[in-house]
Design a binder for these strands. Structure first.
Length: 376
RNA sequence: GGGGGGAUACCAGAGCGGUCAAAUGGGGCAGACUGUAAAUCUGUUGGCGAAGCCUUCGGAGGUUCGAAUCCUCCUCCCCCCA
């Protein structure tokens, strides 16, 4: 894996770069659609490639391990061949499930015992085991196994958790260094900074993570309910410590405004379920602001979903029609909304990239943040 | 022609003397959603203002301290037998 920074913004920490993997290059800053169970929900792979123009998507270790399972994944020749996405894939480690499925797991030093949300069966996730799973999935970027702490989180717990995540990281590194990829292409490990919203912990964590010299570094444990300003503060602090010449990935973020602010702080990679989940629930992100397509006001609005929108669905369908699809419970509604939102998110990071290259990013960002988040 | 059942809020449908502005669904309206247990979840749905008040349960009368609930008549609908 190789990362080249091709342009920097003078008024902020934003940068534009190119990340090279064995499955192709990624123009940063980038947004990565989430494909938890091997599918970006409600959107065909062909649309993800050709219409959304995604460059890398996510998969999830916990979910793919439970279903379809490693045997099928290996027989398929890895996730790329299984789901038809022949470009880079990043897998989350299950660290987020430690947070989101807190009610059905137990954390120990050795690892985490999950009780399957599917059938209740118990499964041990150790740092070593998670690396093996991510090898079997065939991710180009494998996230280290961590604990994503909740918000709020008491200092003592955040500290203990962070220290364990650091120990787990060493075990992940050791495992990756003593095993080989299964499918003949390189797989990179990205470690994850934790430390909740505590500056001293974040500092220690960022230094620890940086010391491993990995191909890229991630910031986790944010966007879990803390105020946005707190998230920006932590991000800024951590970005100042993580190596400048490696890609930085802010996990689970976020709203269009969150992403632009993150880019301004030096983040190169983002992922979030928001465009797909909120899309399935009728929320559309556009250049002019946010639309709840289920609202009565769109009842007889036959204008395109978004004039000059990034996706063909923006021109093909009207707001009134999309509202009708949602009200009628038609599956096409969530499909159109998901595709629109993803195309918008990819347009957003692409535009940010161009503004960085043009040297106009900072001013553009400040204007865009206000416009993008207003309710229409 | 004879016998029986019914009419409740946008719809369907509980309630059968006071705790009823009226259960529950659906529909409507609105909100939430940030490394996905989510095509999910929440709120609200007679009027007006904060407690509270005002007009409602086919229509008109009546009984009662009090009626969606009991009685009488009327209107309309459904079922069975001829």
């Amino acid at each position: 894996m190789n990362f080249n920074i091709t342009a920097r913004d003078s008024a902020s920490k934003a940068r534009a770069g190119v990340l090279t993997t064995d499955h192709g290059t990624i123009q940063t800053p980038i947004f990565m659609p989430v494909g938890t169970a091997g599918s970006v929900k409600a959107v065909h792979i062909r649309e993800i490639k050709e219409d959304v123009k995604a460059q890398i998507i996510l998969g999830n270790t916990y979910h793919l391990y439970l279903r379809p399972g490693l045997d099928i994944l290996k027989k398929a020749g890895g996730l790329h061949k299984f789901n038809g996405w022949n470009r880079p894939i990043l897998t989350d480690s299950g660290g987020y499930q430690v947070y989101s499925l807190a009610g059905s797991r137990k954390i120990k030093e050795e690892g985490v015992v999950f009780q399957s949300h599917i059938d209740g069966s118990r499964h041990h996730f150790t740092p070593e085991g998670v690396m093996d799973i991510e090898r079997a999935i065939g991710a180009d970027i494998m996230m280290a196994f961590d604990e994503c702490t909740p918000y709020p989180c008491e200092y003592q717990y955040a500290k203990k958790s962070m220290e364990m995540t650091h120990r787990w990281l060493q075990r992940c590194v050791d495992r990756v260094n003593t095993t080989d990829p299964l499918y003949g292409y390189q797989q990179s490990l990205f470690p994850i900074v934790q430390g909740s919203v505590y500056k001293d912990l974040r500092k220690i964590s960022a230094e620890t993570i940086a010391s491993h010299g990995c191909d890229g570094n991630a910031i986790g444990g944010l966007s879990v309910g803390e105020p946005a300003e707190m998230m920006y503060e932590m991000t800024e602090l951590v970005c100042g410590i993580l190596p400048d010449d490696k890609p930085r990935y802010l996990m689970g973020v976020g709203t269009p405004a969150n992403i632009l602010e993150g880019i301004a702080l030096g983040i190169d990679m983002f992922d979030c379920v928001m465009p797909t989940r909120n899309g399935r629930n009728g929320m559309l992100f556009t250049k002019n602001g946010i639309i709840n397509i289920k609202n009565e006001k769109w009842n007889d609005n036959f204008d395109p979903i978004e004039v000059n929108g990034a996706s063909f669905v923006d021109r093909e369908y009207s707001k009134a029609y999309l509202r009708h699809l949602f009200r009628a419970g038609e599956i096409l509604g969530p499909m159109i909304a998901s595709q629109h939102n993803l195309a918008f998110y990819l347009w957003l990071v692409g535009e940010a990239r161009q503004q960085i290259i043009d040297g106009t990013f900072y001013e553009w960002k400040n204007r865009a943040v206000k416009q993008l988040m207003q309710r229409l």
